[in-house]
Design a protein around this nucleic acid. Structure first.
Length: 576
RNA sequence: CGGAGCGUAGCGCAGUCUGGUAGCGCACCUGCCUUGGGAGCAGGGGGUCGCACGUUCAAUUCGUGUCGCUCCGACCA
């Protein structure tokens, strides 16, 4: 491909609304253009990388036995009402009516449609296991679209859905996908982790997220320093501690004027924050309340508490609600002397603490020397805190947890019968008995993965593509292309030869100064670069250089071509 | 949803406080020159100042409304 006949509108300046590096670079490299909040055009260069990744995903899905189809982007409300998600899904679901006033939505995901297909078409145990997938544009009306392709409203996703006769068979399908996902992200040359995750609104019994490690990631994940345990912090388990010693101190009320936060109270009483108990009141938004206790230097994991209580939603109580339940404004709450009807859920860490400090449920007053059992009662003990760096691993002896930031690029779920039972997807088994189908679903964010690759691979000059995702493998930059015919011919020959061998080459024949061209190629991040021109060509040599670093070397055109072929084979052909 | 900010040329911004019909850099077009890290000179094109209504002799500027975009918050007890 000649640069002059392709279309790469690069920008020297960074658009002001691009926050993260991948968004900035995709804009500057002319890969994407925004048309509305969270909605982008994939420009020719961006589309090439998107297609590269899609192809890797296709190959690995096909290898794992999944079958490609394509479902509609627009979906009728009936299916969503049937699965109960028409009411559950909030404003994120973009709804609209057709000319006959029938309700539709833009599909944010396709469990309903695929389950409908399955219940009509999959009627016998002989047809399973089966796994359908598609690569398709979805729409979620995000509260706050941001970070370019990382959290857009319209985005491309690969989603797959497995159907099995029972739970054990579904586990096998799940494992196959889990393996396929590992292969996919390995092939892309990305640094990633598969972590245990919460199932969220999709539902189901188990799931793993695939996280590309990057400091700008929106999720926090933990992994064990010595075993393979890794989890999203939303899900990561706190370790249940053995019972500690009995308290010694008597209960005493102390005056703590204006000291509301844990830090202020600890400083005022000359104690460490870990000897305080943090008291929080949460609501399900529908009239249920609970008091949650965590160690002063810990933080409540609302998601864990929500799941433990079986609530659909969770939020912190308002100041008015706190006053109503405790008679005290926030800042002085505690579990002592509560009115009837407010359950107390304590984190496991609370049960090993003694002689602690809690609020006295009255302005400017705290209790010291507080001990569980003697001074207050815990309704239930549970794992409800957010784990942190340095915490003990819940799976092995001696390991401690490290914390990372990650970008969620893939998610696999065991759905069980959640959709198949509500939508009556069943089959006949060997004995002619009707059974419910077991499902799994598996997603990969296509655009997000490409953005994550940039997030992980860039420098001050621009993108540094991993070869498998690069829009072009190699660029051939011709110096003084409009005047130096010999250089242009030599460059064209090298280009033709590489292209014939299957290498994707961008031949820069533009009438621009060399520095200008180098800047462009660095910005758009082509991994391999050959420069043809000037004195070197007179000596029968061209320059070979890799974007990721390494020295520039002078080689004959033949040698340079071999180096390119070798690099492309190694990076794109090896793992197959 | 709550809070804040911003909409002026394709992009990045100034001008608005103090009203008098708009400017800079980059990009773009023409010519000359230049050709190893986003060159230089000269000339040129491009804006109903987001939109609507109001105040005024006069509105990019003041007021009201509206639309769009961006940021922050939703861990505080």
């Amino acid at each position: 491909m000649r640069y002059s006949s392709f279309f790469i509108p690069t920008l020297k300046e960074t658009p002001s609304d691009a926050e993260v590096i991948s968004h900035q670079l995709m804009m500057r490299a002319g890969m994407i253009r925004k048309i509305a909040a969270g909605i982008y055009t994939y420009m020719p260069l961006g589309l090439r990388s998107i297609r590269k990744f899609e192809q890797i995903v296709r190959e690995e899905m096909n290898r794992a036995g999944a079958i490609e189809l394509l479902m509609p982007a627009v979906q009728p409300s009936e299916l969503w009402i049937e699965s109960k998600r028409w009411a559950q899904y909030g404003k994120e679901l973009l709804r609209f009516k057709d000319r006959k006033d029938n309700e539709f939505c833009m599909g944010p995901t396709h469990e309903e449609v695929i389950t409908d297909i399955a219940r009509r078409e999959v009627k016998s145990y002989r047809q399973m296991p089966v796994n359908f997938y598609q690569i398709q544009t979805k729409f979620r009306d995000e509260i706050r679209p941001r970070f370019g392709l990382m959290r857009g409203r319209e985005f491309i996703m690969k989603d797959a859905y497995s159907f099995d006769v029972d739970s054990a068979a579904a586990d096998l399908s799940y494992d196959k996908m889990y393996q396929a996902y590992n292969r996919i992200f390995e092939r892309c040359g990305l640094n990633f982790r598969a972590v245990e995750a919460d199932t969220g609104s999709i539902g189901g019994s188990a799931s793993h997220e695939f996280m590309v490690l990057a400091s700008s990631g929106e999720d926090a994940i933990v992994s064990c320093s010595s075993c393979r345990y890794a989890a999203n912090v939303e899900k990561a388990e706190g370790v249940q501690m053995p019972q500690g010693g009995a308290g010694q101190q008597p209960l005493a009320k102390v005056h703590t004027p204006g000291r509301k936060t844990i830090a202020e109270v600890a400083e005022f009483l000359q104690l460490t924050q870990s000897t305080l108990v943090k008291t929080l009141i949460c609501s399900d938004g529908e009239g249920q309340f609970v008091m949650a206790l965590v160690q002063g230097d810990h933080e409540l994991n609302e998601l864990k508490l929500k799941n433990f209580l079986g609530w659909a939603e969770i939020r912190m109580a308002t100041d008015e609600e706190v006053l109503r339940f405790t008679g005290s404004p926030p800042g002085f709450l505690g579990p002592i002397g509560l009115k009837e009807g407010l359950d107390v859920v304590a984190d496991y860490a609370i049960s090993v603490m003694s002689d602690v400090v809690v609020g006295a449920n009255q302005s400017d007053q705290h209790f010291t020397g507080v001990n569980q059992g003697r001074d207050f009662v815990v309704t239930r003990s549970a794992d409800i805190r957010l784990v942190g760096a340095g915490d003990p691993c819940p799976r092995c002896q001696g390991g401690t947890l490290e914390i990372w930031r990650g970008i969620e690029v893939g998610h696999v779920f065991k759905l069980g019968t959640k959709y198949s039972s509500s939508m009556n997807a069943s089959y006949l088994d060997k004995d002619g008995k009707e059974q419910t189908i077991f499902m799994g679903c598996y997603g990969i964010g296509i655009g997000r993965t490409v953005a994550a690759a940039i997030e992980q691979n860039n420098d001050e000059n621009g993108i540094i593509w991993p070869l498998p995702l690069a829009p072009f493998h190699c660029s051939v930059v011709v110096i003084n292309a409009q005047k130096d015919q010999a250089a242009l011919v030599a460059g064209q020959q090298l280009h033709d030869r590489l292209e014939t061998a299957g290498v994707e080459v961008l031949l820069d024949d533009r009438d621009e100064r060399p520095g200008f061209k180098f800047k462009d190629h660095d910005l758009i991040g082509i991994p391999l670069r050959i420069v043809v021109g000037g004195k070197n060509l007179a000596d029968g040599k061209v320059e070979y250089k890799e974007r990721a670093g390494g020295e520039m070397t002078l080689l004959t055109p033949d040698e340079a071509a071999d180096r390119v072929l070798e690099a492309v084979r190694k990076a794109c052909g090896g793992i197959r």
